[in-house]
């Protein structure tokens, strides 16, 4: 078993990082530029982001590979660079953290909608994820992080891809849910229970949710997931829906709120906690303090 999974099994709460895109922009990602291409053109930028989150106390740091599937890179005409971009993405983080944190190989949605609703071909999609994941594995990634998925079938293809190129690699699979009157569903209409069951039977080691509509909903999601799955859970919440304060938009959930509410997530049985849109290294630092005081 990977030491990542052993840590979780031993009851350790792991802290992952926060938002990536907004920091990349702050540090120099130009408008219209492919965020993952920075891994090759200006590796110092993703390196600085990894360092900020590492210094904030994260145990798990994601690679800048969210949109580095060939399907997504093709939008920038960069699909022929899939391998290089993913290898560099993982190596950059690895160089920053050494053996002191785990590298999360981020694998986001393909941007395509699967047939028959869209034109995404499932075989092609799985092969694409295999290419991406194989590259991350070759660069010694610690965990494959399938994230922000809104279609269970697509998440399953990514999961299958991970299992076929690296059967022993730890895989974390995260869906993004909406709160509906009927309970939590993805936008594609997959219920939370169906997602949990599907991901578990396809071999996910850890399941959970990222992004979303703030911490309170995420706590509910964690409680619901615990009822239907015995797998370890991960929750990486965004900082709520932005609100208008005197003409400025701010994310309502400050680092202090994260520091306070993270205990509810842990009480709900969550093993990996972290942030998403609207969170910063300060958020991660605040959660670290809470975790260290428990």
């Amino acid at each position: 078993m990977s030491s990542f999974l052993e840590d979780i099994k031993s009851g350790k709460i792991l802290l992952s990082d926060g938002a990536m895109g907004s920091l990349l922009m702050e540090k120099g990602l130009k408008h219209g530029e492919c965020p993952e291409h920075l891994n090759l053109t200006q590796p110092e930028i993703p390196e600085e982001v990894a360092r900020l989150y590492f210094d904030a106390g994260a145990d798990v740091i994601q690679s800048n590979t969210f949109g580095a599937s060939p399907m997504k890179l093709a939008e920038y005409g960069l699909d022929d660079k899939t391998e290089e971009i993913n290898v560099a993405g993982v190596s950059i983080v690895k160089n920053v953290v050494g053996n002191n944190a785990y590298v999360y190989g981020s694998c986001g949605p393909s941007g395509k909608i699967l047939q028959p609703f869209g034109d995404g071909d499932p075989d092609e999609m799985q092969r694409g994820f295999e290419t991406q994941i194989q590259a991350m594995v070759s660069a010694n990634v610690d965990v494959i992080f399938i994230e922000t998925m809104t279609d269970l079938n697509e998440a399953l293809l990514a999961l299958k891809a991970a299992k076929s190129v690296a059967p022993d690699m730890a895989v974390v699979a995260c869906m993004t849910y909406e709160a509906t009157p009927k309970g939590f569903y993805t936008i594609m209409g997959n219920s939370l229970a169906d997602c949990a069951a599907g991901l578990e039977s396809a071999g996910a080691d850890v399941i959970g949710s990222n992004c979303g509509n703030g911490l309170d909903k995420m706590i509910e999601i964690a409680i619901e997931l615990k009822k239907v799955s015995h797998l370890p859970l991960v929750i990486q919440s965004n900082a709520g829906l932005p609100q208008n304060q005197d003409g400025h938009l701010v994310y309502p959930e400050t680092p202090d709120i994260f520091a306070e509410k993270v205990t509810d997530l842990i009480d709900a049985g969550v093993s990996i906690v972290g942030g998403c849109c609207g969170t910063t290294p300060e958020t991660i630092k605040a959660i670290r303090q809470t975790l260290d005081s428990i």
């Binding site: 909608i113 028959p116 609703f117 869209g118 909406e178 509906t180 009157p181 009927k182 569903y185 993805t186 936008i187 594609m188 209409g189």
Partner: peptide, 11 residues
């Protein structure tokens, strides 16, 4: 109103 989901809209 969450009575249907995206696949239905796409069809």
């Amino acid at each position: 109103d969450f009575e249907i989901f995206l696949p239905d809209v796409l069809l």
